[in-house]
Nucleic acid binder design. Structure first.
Length: 471
RNA sequence: GGCCCUAUCGUCUAGCGGUCUAGGACGUAGCCCUCUCAAGGCUAAGACGGGGGUUCGAGUCCCCCUAGGGUCACCA
């Protein structure tokens, strides 16, 4: 049986990188059966944010990346918050010290800083100088516990995507495993928990490759079997640096509130690391899971292209059943939120192929639910027409609108006949009506829009516009 | 800088020695459709980083270089 996990740190907004790694873990678990664990890596008390854990779970759930075990659902290997497992890490550390694989260290931050400065002055690798390696400090006084990395030799481990990776021990620092506050660092906690939770496959970000030897050393010291690692490529900014808050929206919440659909996010994220073939770019989570093969994950870091995500989001919006789209719109659009259901539904066909994001609904449709902004002659009067002519034409159009059933084909026929009869181009009349009725230049099809708005409201707006032209 | 990873159009990618005068998608440009904007259709520009090998034959295998990225914390 396969056991995978994702271990986000509750230090801020739920990160899109967490969604990315979660997606692949989720697919792996779905493909091979087994369990997917959500573990909260809250061992850094200084960066901890109380609201972050709930936000992470909320956004992963929004994406549909469900987990089998976690802080909220529990499970046999709990607790699933590392801050609630500190006894385990402390015991593990004692075992390591006893076995000679780790040692206590009471060097002060000041001393470490000084050592680092000197090393840098001599252009050496900044790293712990081993001062406490052989001191055999007793438990008790304030100290940390460090991993006793062999001075010579190297560690080789297998990466599922890259094959064997070898790293010389002299480039591996005597990493702190247990901090002076009694909390473990990532390295200790992840190894202890992954083992105790039975994790068999670790799909995590590439940035961990260089510290994997530390983890291998820990597994060996404990006498535990190694999991299989898959280091996923890092999502990138446009300049190819690791994706970051300053250069990209990284909060999943931002995407949800910004009108992106979870299915589009998932599809896009999958595209950033996997290919279902050259002509298969739009696919469901189910299709992805079916096709997923861990060995086929990409190794090069993809640039997070917001434009392509938006395109994909538009594809999903267009594919969606109208009633479902209406339901989703209520979640993010202020206009749709408290709209009458029937009226909301009638607007869907007008906007479905015009939105890339759900949030665009407001800009497109607000005039159907609220008063339109008044516009002047500049907008209303077509080229080659006078304000007086336009006012007169608008009034005739108002009469047609007021006397015609609000059915697109009927209304269109009436208005086109009116334009033709008056020597107007239909598009000039319709553009004037667009401004008169909506107050703007770009709208959904104006005839359909007028039918949604209703005869009285349209007539009133058209009359108001004509009046503004001084007619 | 040391170490590690990566390398096909601007971007995401197909390609697993010959079918590659390198295919698709986003984006860009033009045209068509058209009441605006979209959507849709058609067309165009656009890539195998460089150098050595291996081989009858290399985008595809190997090496070097170059470039980009990651990592060198009592952060994850």
């Amino acid at each position: 049986m396969v056991v995978v996990r994702v271990a986000p740190s509750p230090t801020g907004d739920p990160h899109v990188g967490t969604a990315y790694v979660s997606l692949f873990n989720y697919a792996f678990r779905r493909k091979h059966g087994g369990r997917f664990i959500l573990r909260i890596d809250d061992t850094d008390r200084t960066r901890y944010r109380a609201d972050s854990e709930a936000a992470i779970m909320r956004e992963l759930a929004w994406l549909g990346l469900s987990w089998d075990e976690g802080p909220d659902v529990g499970g046999a290997a709990g607790p699933y918050r590392q801050s609630e497992r500190t006894d385990l890490y402390r015991e593990a550390c004692e075992e390591l010290v006893r076995k000679g694989a780790a040692y206590r260290c009471d060097c002060t931050p000041e001393r470490l800083e000084k050592v680092r400065e000197e090393q840098q002055k001599r252009k050496e690798q900044p790293r712990y100088d081993g001062h406490c390696r052989e001191r055999r400090l007793p438990p008790g006084p304030p100290h940390v516990v460090r991993l006793k990395v062999p001075l010579d030799g190297e560690t080789t481990f297998m990466d599922g995507l890259r094959g064997a990776i070898t790293i010389a021990h002299k480039t591996v620092d005597d990493q702190v495993l247990l901090k002076s506050d009694g909390f473990p660092t990532y390295h200790l906690a992840t190894v202890v928990d992954d083992h105790r939770m039975g994790v068999t496959h670790i799909l995590r970000a590439e940035e961990w490759i260089n510290s994997t030897p530390k983890h291998v050393l820990l597994y060996h010291a404990f006498g535990w079997p190694l999991p299989k690692w898959y280091h996923l490529p890092l999502l990138r900014n446009a300049d190819r640096s690791k994706i970051s808050k300053r250069k990209n929206p990284t909060s999943i919440t931002w995407y949800r509130e910004g009108g992106f659909l979870p299915e589009a996010m998932l599809n896009f994220l999958a595209l950033m690391g996997f290919s279902l073939g050259d002509d298969k770019e739009v696919f469901s989570l189910e299709e992805f899971v079916d096709a997923f093969e861990p060995d086929a994950i990409k190794t090069s870091g993809p640039i997070f292209d917001l434009q392509k995500l938006e395109w994909l989001n538009g594809v999903y919006i267009r594919q969606m059943a109208p009633a479902e789209l209406a339901r989703r719109l209520r979640g993010v659009s202020a206009v749709a939120r408290d709209a009458d259901e029937r009226k909301l539904l009638t607007t869907i066909p007008l906007v479905q192929e015009r939105m890339k994001k759900l949030t665009e609904y407001d800009e497109l449709c607000d005039f159907l639910f609220r008063d339109a902004a008044p516009v002047g002659a500049e907008e209303l009067v077509p080229k080659g027409r006078t304000p007086a002519e336009t006012a007169a034409m608008l009034r005739r159009a108002r009469d047609v609108v007021a006397a015609t059933d609000p059915v697109p084909a009927t209304l269109e026929a009436g208005l086109r006949a009116l334009a033709e009869g008056g020597g107007w181009k239909a598009k000039d009349l319709l553009m004037a009506l667009r401004f008169a009725v909506s107050g703007k230049k770009v709208t959904p099809p104006i005839i359909e829009s007028m039918c949604v708005l209703g005869r009285d409201a349209c007539a009133a707006r058209i009359e108001a516009a004509a009046a503004r032209l001084g007619g």
